[in-house]
Design a protein around this nucleic acid. Structure first.
Lengths: 348, 348
DNA sequence: CTGTTAGCGCGTTCAC
DNA sequence: GTGAACGCGCTAACAG
């Protein structure tokens, strides 16, 4: 709300009636006690139905609403969930990445449905205790971290003593925090099998293996190949932003490399590869098959439409929120692993 | 923070030392008063430098941080800014739209830099008073609305009595709220001039004119054409999501329409058009020039790279935040109109 | 330079 | 069925 009291504030939600800034004000006007107001407006406790109606009508008339901050302070909660985007391995990624923004949108919907606000924060993990600081500031009742990035150590440390933490990312054995994520190893295998089925033999993997999600995709990809092919796969380290992945792909093709099958660790990378290849006269899918990962909405309208390993973002968001809220309620819950699915389109 | 007191909560940030949950606890341990703690930790007021250091060290040692909620309650502020995404004209748009997510990311950065949290909320304007409700709930010190959508009436009504409101969107004369936005009329004109310069004469505009931003782009586009061409421009109403814009574009070309120059109201629409055209054997840019709007990061890696009217999102976010914070501080400020710029790439 | 104290706006016993 | 009083954790006078 606006600053109160002795501030230079001139702007206020100015209802037609007198200023009602607290339940005390309303109590005075209504001729009842503050606790009656509280009971009427929260619906908690027992109260004569007529009194309740009268108070509510009066509150409406004055445009009065309970102050959520004070309410939360009193209740020892904040009513908000923090959603953090660590940008450890790749500055500028994430929110420029359609995958993360889609996730964010679904999280917002899901949290709103459960009466929670979504407090968003991008983090450039300069200080090692960025997560600890956030948790300790007490601004939220729980934290969802989108992507492990290269911050595994930080997550481990905080996860050990703070339980209301759920992370979107790679599933690990014995992680001290909850995770929800796609089975990246299985996803990598799907890509490998598809490229093999297409008769591709000169294979390459484009991705940043600093982040465990991508490392797992690479691992699953390699494991699903016959040993002779596996040994020849080219691993191309690449950043996740459109600009840098495009630049890296261009350089790669310009250097004369000519794989006939490429697995990209994300759809953005996949689209960059297609675009860079086109510039060098490499025709997709005739001369080269490209498989992405994520199935962002744009994959469908890419030219050609991108074959990709689909992650169910909406389901992921649902599970993240469900798990976290159960944790906050004190329940004992387990991490979730989602199955990926191959979506065949024109790029392969 | 976690629920406190009599909750079933078992998980806590458990520092090595004793539990320190409030400045009172820390005061006891340090052997000083609560106000000394407050002064030491906030840096406000005067305090012996040694005492300050000692208290800070002690706080660190116990992993104690000031409770932001209580702090804000006391200060009569919330420390958060609401960012609302009305989905009036187009469900599912916005967060799936790279433009909006890029904006969101920049807003998050900019707000964080000024010590504010970003409270995000997607709104399906079912109830006419969605904005009023949000404002009155007192959860934030101010509100940024991204896109007017078709909610002009709501914005007008709220803007008249609530001043801490800034809207990204079309600039209008006599709007009762602050706006920051690109000069969409000028942007439309840039697109028109570019297509004319390319020798294109059979022109089309793809966009949803329910939203004032897009209506202004169309208007600027038409106004910059010679009368004879203007009369023949085809206006193709289209939704903004990738799926629906792609479907609409496909249908349009399948019906035999063959414009040689297209102005798309957004880059997503532009990419959809290119993709749909390719499916029908229409080669871009040889047979048809396509100009988008926004210059999202993906425009650069599209195939072919998309010519577009660039909006400076980062600058827009900066101005939105600056204006709002000045308003909150009680300053008198004016709306901002940003100049668009044409970026020529391969699609035209 | 530091301590005491009175609230910020609300929810919740415990009386009546 | 309703009211009085206390306190959530913090800041800012006002004293000393």
């Amino acid at each position: 709300m606006n600053a109160k009291g002795p501030s230079p504030q001139k702007s206020e939600v100015r209802p037609p009636k007198a200023e009602v800034r607290s339940i005390a004000d309303l109590a005075r006007i209504a001729g009842v006690s503050v606790s009656t107001i509280s009971r009427a407006l929260t619906g908690k406790g027992t109260l004569n139905e007529k009194t309740r109606e009268r108070v509510r009508a009066l509150a409406d008339e004055h445009g009065f609403r309970l102050n959520v901050a004070a309410q939360n302070l009193r209740l020892g909660r904040t009513g908000a969930i923090g959603v953090l985007l660590p940008l450890g391995h790749d500055r500028g990624q994430h929110l420029s990445d359609p995958f993360f923004s889609a996730m964010l949108g679904h999280l917002a919907d899901e949290l709103a449905e459960h009466g929670y606000d979504l407090l968003m924060s991008r983090v450039l993990p300069g200080r090692a205790n960025w997560l600890d600081d956030f948790v300790r500031s007490g601004r939220t009742d729980g934290v969802i971290v989108i992507g492990q990035s290269n911050q595994g150590a930080v997550l481990d440390a905080v996860g050990r003593h703070y339980r209301n933490l759920v992370v979107w990312g790679a599933h690990g054995t014995d992680l001290p925090y909850l995770t929800v994520g796609t089975d990246n190893v299985a996803g990598g295998a799907l890509a490998a099998e598809h490229l093999l089925a297409r008769g591709r033999r000169r294979l390459a993997f484009f991705g940043n293996v600093e982040a465990p999600e991508f490392a797992a995709r690479e691992q699953g990809f390699l494991a699903a190949l016959p040993p002779d092919l596996r040994a020849q796969v080219e691993i191309v380290p690449i950043q996740l932003t459109p600009e840098s992945s495009f630049a890296a792909a261009s350089a790669y093709f310009a250097a004369g490399n000519r794989p006939d099958g490429v697995f990209a660790a994300s759809d953005i990378i996949g689209m960059s590869i297609v675009s860079a290849a086109a510039e060098q006269g490499i025709v997709v899918p005739e001369a080269m098959s490209v498989v992405g990962f994520d199935d962002i909405l744009l994959a469908r309208i890419a030219t050609p439409p991108l074959t990709t390993v689909r992650q169910d973002i909406a389901e992921g968001a649902r599970r993240l929120v469900a798990l976290l809220l159960q944790r906050i309620a004190g329940a004992d819950v387990a991490s979730v692993l989602l199955e990926p699915r191959l979506v065949e389109r024109g790029s392969s």
